[in-house]
Design a protein around this nucleic acid. Structure first.
Length: 221
DNA sequence: GACCAGGCACATC
DNA sequence: GATGTGCATGGT
């Protein structure tokens, strides 16, 4: 069992934790809400997702069986603030259908599944890609799988940790190779990266004051 | 008004 | 297989 993780990614983690403190993710309440949020936040600001989740709660619809019974046409207006409501209502229903039909809408029923198998099943659902699947596995089911998002990719690229042609799986592999296999660490680091990204890692970088500035080298921003 | 957000599937070449 | 495009609301 390795314990000697002393590398750039661990340094990032320490610096970010020092700067921003624990992020206490996932924001929200319970595994099913995490699953819903994971779909709704696709390419979408979290503040908008919260509005959509509030709509679901106010309508007393935030449970697997109820969403499974709603038509896509009924679900779409409830999640409208999160954007792409026609697409996301379909995606959310696909995920919930799988969860209800195959696992009785119960997180406990997923416990017997090996993580690799679980990930395969999630990825087989139309509308669930690698980031959504990994978010569900890490934040809803609390299993150690690293979540790569746009910010992670940008940050690792700008710090020369990965190649520009690295895809999702390769980037994830880089992270997992350089970190201990630890749910709490994966949880916190991904959340910290998002926290950093929101302020300092836009497509057109405005990096002044970035806590990772001193690690910059070799890539022109 | 332009830019951006915690992606993904699908069409087209 | 890689590249481009549609999907949509709301904040800065």
């Amino acid at each position: 069992m390795r314990t000697d993780y002393d590398n750039k990614l661990m340094s990032f983690y320490k610096v970010l934790l020092e700067r921003f403190g624990p992020q206490d993710w996932w924001p929200g309440d319970g595994p099913f809400e995490v699953m819903v949020g994971a779909v709704l936040t696709q390419n979408t600001n979290w503040a908008n997702v919260e509005k959509a989740i509030k709509n679901l709660k106010d309508a007393d619809m935030l449970c697997p069986e109820k969403i499974d019974r709603l038509s896509q046409q009924e679900l779409a207006p409830l999640i409208r603030p999160a954007g792409y409501s026609n697409i996301k209502s379909r995606r959310l229903k696909n995920l919930v259908r799988w969860f209800c039909r195959d696992y009785d809408g119960s997180v406990d029923e997923l416990a017997g599944l090996a993580t690799d198998r679980l990930r395969e099943e999630l990825l087989s659902i139309n509308g669930v890609g690698p980031e959504t699947a990994d978010s569900i596995i890490l934040y809803a089911l609390e299993r150690p799988t690293f979540v790569v998002d746009t910010y992670t990719y940008r940050i690792l690229l700008r710090h020369s940790c990965i190649d520009p042609e690295s895809d999702y799986e390769q980037t994830k592999e880089y992270c997992q190779m350089n970190l201990p296999d630890d749910v709490v660490l994966y949880n916190e680091l991904h959340a910290l990266i998002v926290r950093l990204g929101k302020n300092y890692c836009r497509p057109k970088p405005r990096c002044s004051g970035c806590p990772l500035e001193r690690f910059e080298h070799s890539i022109e921003l």
